[in-house]
């Protein structure tokens, strides 16, 4: 595999829904390449189709036209080459933490001894090994999402897809999770496609921020962010951070004032 092949290569992706007799274009046309090992965020006004976009890349929702390639291989179904983390907890409530992480490996035929080793590694990576015998319902929202991350990393996908994984958490937990995610991401070295509506979150975490327009979605701008890593939370206070943040804010609010009437 050549190093030139992007981790995720999206070409002329388009999504049109049919609602009764009406056709609704969710995604106008998007082409996007995510280089190996990069953390890429997608931001856009709410309802712009960024989550739909991610679900299409994951293979959960069918696309209308265009192609999605993961490390050069075309995909149109869900598969373990793309690890998806959902906004709401997708942990199985009838399995304890350990079995939640182990089940995916079992499905893929990983033998027991190897499975135990992998589960232990990732539960320790997210600092929740001590909770391996607990049920998901006994954990906080932040812990659940860390388990979800461990579960996804455990089956070793080529890329990580994350759909507002911290969207349901309170502001402080959310900041902690961002720092945690950065640490885990740096250790795992995966390419990430991260959808969020939180500009600060996107700028703090990403190498590249992709700004979507309002529905139907097109790419408005691609912004590279090159703060040194690991980033500390106080990077938020730097002028450079605020400039980027404000720039993205302006981009999103042009959208709001343009098509804002039906947003609320």
């Amino acid at each position: 595999m050549s190093t030139q092949t992007p981790a995720i290569d999206i070409e002329k992706l388009r999504k049109v829904y049919t609602r009764g007799k009406e056709e609704v274009t969710a995604i106008q046309e998007i082409s996007l390449q995510i280089p190996e090992g990069k953390f890429v965020s997608i931001v856009g006004p709410s309802g712009c189709g960024k989550s739909t976009f991610l679900h299409i890349v994951g293979g959960f929702i069918p696309k209308s036209t265009g192609t999605v390639r993961i490390r050069g291989k075309e995909v149109d179904k869900p598969g373990p080459d793309r690890g998806m983390m959902f906004q709401e907890s997708a942990l199985f409530p009838w399995k304890n933490v350990y079995d939640n992480v182990a089940w995916g490996l079992e499905v893929q035929g990983v033998e027991k001894a190897k499975r135990d080793e992998i589960v232990e590694h990732y539960l320790k990576l997210v600092h929740l090994w001590d909770f391996r015998n607990n049920l998901p319902s006994e954990l906080s929202g932040g812990m659940k999402q860390r388990i979800s991350l461990a579960r996804v990393l455990a089956f070793n996908p080529d890329v990580l897809l994350m759909d507002e994984p911290f969207g349901a958490l309170d502001a402080q937990t959310r900041e902690k999770m961002q720092v945690e995610l950065q640490r885990i991401w740096q250790e795992s070295n995966k390419s990430v496609m991260f959808v969020t509506h939180d500009i600060d979150e996107a700028v703090f975490l990403s190498d590249i921020v992709v700004v979507f327009s309002g529905r139907p979605a097109v790419i408005k701008e691609i912004i590279e962010i090159d703060f040194a890593r690991p980033r500390q939370l106080d990077v938020h206070k730097t002028q450079e951070f605020m400039d980027i943040r404000n720039h993205i804010w302006d981009l999103l609010h042009q959208e709001h004032s343009k098509s804002g009437e039906d947003e609320f």
Partner: peptide
């Protein structure tokens, strides 16, 4: 919940595995 089925598909579970285990 759709996400349970999606999560299982994501891991590469077959339809029969999803039926029995999810």
């Amino acid at each position: 919940k759709q996400v349970y089925v999606w999560a299982a598909q994501n891991m590469g579970a077959s339809r029969i595995q999803i039926l029995w285990k999810i």
